[in-house]
Nucleic acid binder design. Structure first.
Lengths: 213, 213
DNA sequence: GGATGTGAATGCATTCACAGCA
DNA sequence: TGCTGTGAATGCATTCACATCC
């Protein structure tokens, strides 16, 4: 399976398909068409079929897709049929919230450790783990074969910590610090900037207000 | 200024430009070229110029862009030259973290209220506001002219709450619930699903591992 | 010389439309 | 008939390349 040559937006949508299919599954729905699945997510049926088509043929002409079957396939594609051990760096407000977030575990992600340099935070139990000093990062990453990390440290510290994680063997970082991380070959990076998200809405609301007026 | 016909990716980048320019400003940098700005964000210089070009001519040929000047322009474009009052719905782990997040205020967003239906949470002070019962939503939205809301409620409740917010006059929602919100004309919506973010990394790390092998 | 601003060219993603199968 | 899978056509975003200006 060649992973490059696949549109990035398509991969983003795969996650949405999976999420929606899990909802169908829980509702006892066993079959779904590209049209129905798409409508739940505001995506065209052709787009759904094309996205899945990058990875194989999972549907049944005249019938649709089997929900459980497609869930299994998508998990395999996305790599969440196995469990990933994940560490959280930074035990501030955001880090603590993430450590207690219930949505990760049944998606195939297990938070195995938290790190912070504040001596007042080290030793605290949060969401089932205990905050450790940053000096332990390498040992923990090694011990638990950690490949994914969540970065919830201040912007000033983020690039340096990211480099350190890469050095330790982490291959993917989800960054919540409001700063651009220098790209590293061999490391996947994704950033979520909360203020930027609001700014986008601000722009769009302004557009709605001025075009409507 | 016609707000439609502008590529959505371009608007996303404007926020990144602004963020980076604010860093330059703090470092005492007063001029910047499209090349330099782009390099800090892994964006080509042509892209930077094209994005800005959708909104006007802000540069000085042979010189570059004035940092403070461009910051002011971008704030106006994004609508954050004015302060937006924002409410947070849901005072769970994530809601509480967002209420205490320091990054919003100097970006032009003021969190004016939090809501939750859990009687144990109502009355609690968090990050400068007091948690109110959901029944107060309409009154607060009205009183503070709230146009933006952050949705941090469970997935089951999210669509209903979103509809209610729209009814109350909210025009933009940042949704953290892992569910698709039905689109509403006259309302801007943006979703951040934390598990989906990790899934994307999972996919990419798998790709790195298999292509490298 | 060194930078912007911007049409033209390219490349990528989405949509169309239909053959093929249950 | 109803739906998938997929080449072909379209549409959109990015990059090129250069005229223009300090």
């Amino acid at each position: 399976m060649k992973f490059d040559s696949i549109p990035n937006p398509a991969v983003r949508r795969l996650s949405l398909y999976l999420r929606q299919l899990e909802i169908y599954s829980q509702l006892g729905q066993h079959a779904v068409s590209s049209r129905t699945l798409g409508q739940s997510l505001n995506i065209t049926d052709a787009q759904v079929r094309k996205d899945l088509g990058y990875f194989g043929q999972f549907g049944h002409p005249g019938v649709g897709y089997n929900v459980e079957e497609l869930i299994a396939q998508l998990r395999t594609i996305l790599g969440t049929d196995k469990v990933w051990n994940v560490v959280v760096i930074g035990a501030g407000n955001l880090g603590r919230a993430l450590l207690q977030y219930k949505g990760f575990v049944n998606k195939g992600f297990r938070l195995v450790a938290a790190f912070d340099d504040d001596p007042k935070k080290v030793g605290q139990p949060i969401g089932g783990v205990i905050v450790r000093p940053m000096s332990n990062i390498e040992a923990v990453v090694d011990e638990f074969a950690v490949k994914l990390a969540i970065l919830a440290v201040p912007a000033e510290a983020a690039p340096e910590v990211c480099a350190r994680l890469a050095q330790a063997g982490v291959m993917g970082v989800l960054n919540f610090a409001p700063v651009a991380l220098p790209p590293r070959p061999g490391m996947a990076q994704s950033s979520v900037d909360l203020a930027v998200q609001l700014e986008q809405l601000s722009f769009q609301v302004n557009a709605l207000l001025t075009e409507g007026a």
